[in-house]
Simulated assay, not measured.
Amino acid sequence: MLRKLDNKKMGRSNLGWLRSIFHFSFAEYYNPDNMNFGVLRVINDDLIEGGTGFDTHPHRNMEIISYVVNGELTHGDSMGNKNTLTRGQVQYMSAGTGVLHSEHNLGNDTARFLQIWIMPDKNGYAPNYGDYRFAFEDRKNNWLHMVSGESGNAPIKINQDANFYALELEEGKEITFPVEKNRQAYLVQIEGEASINNLELETRDALEIIEENIKIKSKTTSHILVIEMAKN
Rank of each mutant, 00 (worst) to 15 (best):
H57E: 05
Y129V: 08
H101C: 10
R112K: 04
L40Q: 08
I210Q: 03
R41I: 12
H57A: 11
L114F: 13
S195T: 07
A135M: 02
A162C: 10
K219H: 03
E103K: 06
T97K: 14
K231S: 08
L5V: 15
V147F: 02
T221S: 09
H145M: 02
L2Q: 12
N197K: 11
I116D: 01
Y29R: 06
G152I: 11
G50P: 08
E103N: 07
A166Y: 10
A230C: 00
A162I: 10
Y186F: 15
R41D: 13
I227F: 07
I216F: 07
S102W: 05
M93T: 12
L167S: 10
N61Q: 09
E150L: 12
E211C: 02
Y30I: 13
E49M: 13
K217W: 00
S13C: 03
V42Y: 15
Q115V: 04
V69S: 06
N31F: 08
F24L: 01
E191D: 13
G76V: 01
A27F: 06
I190S: 07
Y129N: 03
A135Q: 08
D46I: 07
T56F: 12
A206Y: 03
D131V: 01
E137V: 00
N81P: 02
R204K: 07
D45T: 07
G192Q: 08
A135H: 02
Y67G: 04
A126P: 03
F136I: 12
G16T: 05
F113Y: 14
Y29P: 08
M119D: 01
H104P: 00
K122M: 11
K82N: 07
K140N: 00
M10H: 15
G50H: 12
Y165N: 14
A135C: 00
Y132C: 02
G88Q: 06
T52H: 15
T56L: 14
A162W: 12
